[in-house]
């Protein structure tokens, strides 16, 4: 085994390539995935390698091509459907909710939809209120879906293959702020499951629970807190549905204090769900109330200072931890 350095973007691309090479039923479909090379350049070069039948440019018809992915998956293919951003996925919500997530149950177990849908999510690039939202928590509400949010290069490389092996639909959320991030990973990549969270940093004073684009901010906050003698544990959810309760509760039992960091809006959020589960399952392990750091309740604005103010950042996380520990803000 060797080590190799690559970007998150390259990891996504290599994961698609590997899947196409390993399984001829796999194909990629979406807006500008072919000739353009992908909106975020994830699929650059793949058209040349695999041809237009398997790297399939679609019209701007989110409902149409997501539905086509569902039909093709039912009939034996293993489509990877790319939706440019989660905001656009709302145009395909009917297909994802009413068909992909529902058909197995509605047919009494006869149909499965082994479909993978990838989409970009998250803010931080001054793209304003129609390209910046973090709506993955909405999808995590829906029974029948598995929802992934790789937050590190290694997971971006390793999670696609198990997602394609799942007999039911899997959504992968790639935070667009991560595409340029770089890391050294094992080559060949490790085998990961798509059921468990990962502890990215061990600590004994407080548990920080997060995922996706907020993971790096949270780790940075943990490092800063270490300089203040506060030892934070960082749990990377990775899988937003089903949530890995065991890992979360084990960490809470160890630290007794929790801060949840989520780029979604606070109200009705994934952070709210996690908090509730902790109260339900680990109430008697708590030494203080659970705190949350979420996005401000506002459509993400364009101006940089306002956008920054709307999003979780290292300072906000550090302050929340100090308050939780009673250290003063």
């Amino acid at each position: 085994m060797s080590r190799v350095t690559m970007t998150y973007r390259e990891a996504c691309r290599q994961a698609i390539r590997e899947a196409m090479l390993r399984d001829e039923r796999v194909f990629l479909m979406g807006e500008d995935v072919g000739a353009y090379g992908g909106c975020f350049a994830v699929s650059k070069g793949l058209l040349d390698e695999f041809g237009p039948s398997r790297i399939r440019d679609t019209p701007l018809s989110e409902s149409g091509f997501v539905g086509a992915g569902i039909g093709a998956a039912i009939e034996g293919m293993r489509p990877i459907v790319e939706i440019m951003t989660v905001n656009f996925s709302l145009l395909a919500l009917d297909q994802i909710m009413n068909n992909a997530a529902t058909l197995r149950h509605m047919s009494g177990g006869q149909l499965g939809v082994p479909l993978v849908i990838r989409m970009a999510t998250g803010a931080g690039r001054q793209l304003a209120a129609q390209h910046s939202h973090s709506l993955e928590g909405w999808y995590a509400h829906i029974p029948g879906l598995t929802v992934l949010a790789p937050g590190v290069v290694e997971d971006a490389r390793a999670m696609l293959w198990p997602a394609l092996q799942d007999p039911d639909p899997v959504l992968i959320f790639e935070n667009a702020a991560l595409y340029n991030s770089e890391a050294e990973i094992d080559d060949p990549p490790p085998v990961v499951d798509i059921r468990s969270a990962a502890v990215r940093r061990h600590g004994s004073d407080v548990t920080l629970i997060t995922y996706g684009g907020s993971l790096h901010k949270t780790i940075a906050a943990a490092e800063q807190l270490a300089s203040e003698d506060i030892d934070a544990e960082v749990v990377d959810l990775r899988v937003l549905r089903p949530l890995d309760d065991a890992t979360i509760m084990a960490s809470v039992a160890n630290t007794h204090r929790v801060v949840v960091v989520d780029e979604g809006w606070r109200t009705g959020s994934l952070a709210a769900e996690i908090t509730t589960r902790i109260v339900e399952q680990a109430f008697w392990d708590l030494d203080g109330p659970v705190a949350r750091v979420c996005s401000a309740e506002v459509p993400i604005p364009y101006a940089k200072h306002l956008e920054d103010a709307a999003l979780p950042d290292v300072d906000k996380i550090v302050h929340a931890v100090r308050r939780t520990l009673g250290e003063g803000a």
Binding site: H256, F283, W284, L286, D287, R323, G326
Partner: peptide, 27 residues
């Protein structure tokens, strides 16, 4: 007292009112 403190006190039959707190606000 925090939920955890209450649980531990219950398990050990310790009177919480006799303790001074080191948590936020002296809890």
């Amino acid at each position: 007292a925090s939920p955890r403190a209450r649980r531990l006190a219950r398990e050990r039959d310790i009177d919480l009112s006799g303790l001074s707190g080191t948590g936020p606000d002296g809890n």
